[in-house]
Structures are given as structure tokens and as C-alpha cells.
Simulated scan of single mutants.
Amino acid sequence: MGRRVAVFSLGGTIAMTGGPAGGVVPTLTAADLVAAVPALATTGVTLDVHDFRRLPGASLGFDDLLALVTAAGREVAGGADGVVVTQGTDTIEETSYALDLLWPYDAPLVVTGAMRNPTLAGADGPANLLAAVTVAAAPASRRIGCLVVLGDEIHAARWVRKTHTTAPAAFRSPDIGPVGLVAEGRARVLARPARHPLDLQVRDPGAVRTAVLPVVLGDDGATLRRAGSGLDGLVVAGFGVGHVPAATVAVLGELAAGMPVVLASRVGAGPVLTATYGFPGSESDLLSRGLVAAGTLDCYKARVLLHLLLAAGADRDRIATAFGTIGAGEVAGD
């Protein structure tokens, strides 16, 4: 029996055409996207298309993702071998990681999009959709959660980042690189990240307020104090391996006494350390004041994890345990 893949379109550049007021806007349906790729008919994969949202990537939210997981889960329960999600690239590094944490199934969930809209020469959407379907249909893609496929590279949602505003090859996984590739119509999975789906019931993510706040040169903590007063949880993006100006230390300690505060790095690659430096504002100083280390999670993915944990009612101890496990960043078999 042939493979079956469900395709959910959420909008984004891949689905954009010229709008009445100038500029491009999301107008194409899931069926339109599939029809633009004749080669899909030669793969032997049956496609079930779903026009799920028609939004720019920047307007997607956690509620959209929860609804998507529910709908995609029904497709898998009904026999789909995998799921493809097309969306705007603006938020793929965050949405894909949220989906990875929320997706409990063995079937692959593959996110793709486009850097060049269909009105431009060299639009990359059709090739990316073909590659994504190939990956979603491949048995080798099972049991590794959510994957991001663009430019014939397979990235783990856990690691991938958008690293350029306009370049076609905008997506990279700075710490480990791609976990696979598509070549000659075949998905080749070369590494298998360990899975950590949340074993928690996420209730109302819209009721939770979290933020990422970077420290900056000359920071005195006033912005942190003002912003933190209206939050349920905070990710502070520190310098380097997790350092902040000494003037912010007392504020961060006060905030951590009242809500979960996660210490990440604003660098975008590499781990937050825990016990190397000892000066005021160092990583060891901040952790002793109750902050939680993000490990190898960058600040944006750390915020996604924190937000979902809080929306599931996790307390500080459960949050610290989750970051200790997930932030380690191991691959399967380690």
C-alpha cells in the first residue's frame, strides 16, 4: 500500500501572491500549493490537503499550534504516515519547536515554507514542499518528532534557527548542523535527536505571559524590573555563557523569587554554563539566586518551553527539571 501524507497550510510567504494594496499577502490554499508541484504526482504518496490557516507567520500563536496538533493527530490516527505543515518562515524556529514539544506521535511532523514568494524568479516553495512530503513519507523519519525541511536539508526543530532575513539558505542548526538531507528523491536521516515531548496537558497558553529580555551594555536592570512586573515567566538572554551586568543582579534575584526566570544566552549557539565563573553577574551567581539554566536551548526556544510548561501548570521544580533534561541537548543513543 502506498504512503499517505496530510498537508496543512497555514499561510506565509510560500502561499503569497500580489495583494490589492501592493505587496504580497497569503492567498493560496493548500490545494493551490500542491497543484503547483507536478512532481508530487510521481512520488506515489497520497496527499490529503487541509487549508488550515491563511496568515503571515508573524501572526501565528500558541492556540493555532494546539489546534493544529489536534487536527494533525486525527490524520495520523486515521492512517496518515506523516504530516507536512507549510507556513511563514518568520516564526518557523519557534513554531516548529512548540510542535515538537506538543507532538506525541511516532509519525513525522515536517514544517516547511519559502524564502521567495511565488511571484519571484526562483521561488523555492515548490521544491521545499516536494522535499517535505518526501521526508514526511519516509519510514526513516519516524520517532524523531518535528523536522524542518528547506533547501533539501532536514533540520531538527530542537536546533534550527533562521539566520538571514532574505537568503534562500536562511535556515541553519548552529550547534549540530542538519540531521539529514533529501537527494535523488529520498530522505536520508543521518542523526536522530532524542525526543522530549511534554507529558503535560497544555490548557490555555493565551492566558500566560512570558518574554525574552536581553541584557545590554550599561544595563542597570530598570527595564527588567518594569517588564517583569507583568509576566508569569521570563527568559533573560545574557551575554556569552550566561553573564549579566552586576547592576542587574539584585533585580533578577527579586524576579526569580516571584516567578520562573530562565538564564539563556543571546549568542544563539553553545550552552549556558553553570559553574565556571564566580563574579557578581556570572552564571554561577545567577543560578545561586534561583534562576534556571537553559542549557543548550537558545533564548527563543527556551521561552517556548517555559511558556508551554507554565500553560500546563508546571511549578518551578517541574520547570527546572524539564530544562535540566531538555536543555542537555543529547542525541538518541547518548
Rank of each mutant, 00 (worst) to 15 (best):
G177E: 14
P108F: 01
S265E: 08
G324A: 06
G19R: 07
A140E: 15
L305A: 13
Y105I: 07
A312T: 04
I176A: 14
V235F: 14
H307W: 12
G18L: 14
L68A: 00
A6N: 03
G230N: 10
T42P: 02
D100Q: 01
P38V: 01
V304T: 09
V202A: 12
N128W: 14
A314S: 07
A332I: 13
V133K: 07
R316Q: 11
S265Q: 00
L291R: 11
G281S: 04
V216D: 09
G281H: 08
R54D: 02
P108G: 06
M259G: 02
P245D: 02
L224A: 03
T119Q: 05
W103D: 09
V45I: 07
D220R: 10
L190E: 13
T134M: 07
A6W: 01
A322W: 06
L68M: 03
A250K: 09
A121C: 03
G253D: 11
A80R: 06
I319Y: 06
G122C: 03
A31Q: 01
L181W: 10
T296Y: 15
Y105H: 10
L190C: 11
V84K: 04
V235C: 12
V135S: 00
E94N: 01
P260I: 03
A322L: 12
A15H: 02
P197W: 00
A314I: 04
S282F: 13
A72G: 06
A67T: 02
T276A: 14
V160W: 04
A58P: 10
S265C: 08
L28M: 00
G2K: 01
Q87G: 13
A157T: 05
L224H: 09
A6Y: 01
F239T: 13
T13S: 00
V212D: 09
D315P: 13
A250Q: 11
R116W: 05
Y300P: 12
D315W: 04
G221F: 09
T325L: 08
V37Q: 06
V208R: 05
V25S: 12
P126D: 04
A275P: 01
P56K: 07
V236I: 05
G145S: 09
L306I: 08
R188I: 15
S96R: 12
S265V: 04
P26S: 10
V179T: 14
L55H: 12
A211M: 10
G253Q: 04
